[in-house]
């Protein structure tokens, strides 16, 4: 029997993997992918809470859809900015973003 706790464990694990990826990866696109994992962990949480705690309402699912849409917008802007930097420096390694003191 799969309970709420199983879903939350998957969500928490995914969140930690995403956070690790976002902090440890040196490529801007990989960092964005890590952030996407974190957002998907949130979606798992939201849908699981919705299903187990308040199945008669769909607030959690609606929230998850909003998160997906906003994440897409964020990635669109993020990739545009990475492209902009890449065209100038032929590089998307965030360690090289040192023109401003980090």
């Amino acid at each position: 029997m799969i309970t709420l706790n199983h879903y939350l464990a998957v969500g928490g694990l995914l969140f930690c993997i995403g956070l690790f990826g976002a902090l440890a990866k040196r490529n801007a696109i990989a960092v964005l992918m890590g952030i996407e994992l974190m957002l998907n962990a949130v979606n798992i949480n939201l849908v699981a809470f919705n299903h187990f705690l308040a199945p008669d309402q769909v607030t959690g699912q609606i929230f998850a859809i909003f998160v997906i849409v906003v994440a897409a917008a964020e990635v669109a802007v993020g990739l545009a900015l990475v492209l902009n930097i890449y065209r100038r420096r032929l590089d998307s390694n965030i360690d090289d973003l040192d023109w401003l003191k980090w």
Partner: peptide, 11 residues
């Protein structure tokens, strides 16, 4: 510098 500021703020 402006591009770099943008990507830092975004990430």
């Amino acid at each position: 510098k402006s591009a770099e500021a943008g990507i830092k703020y975004l990430l």
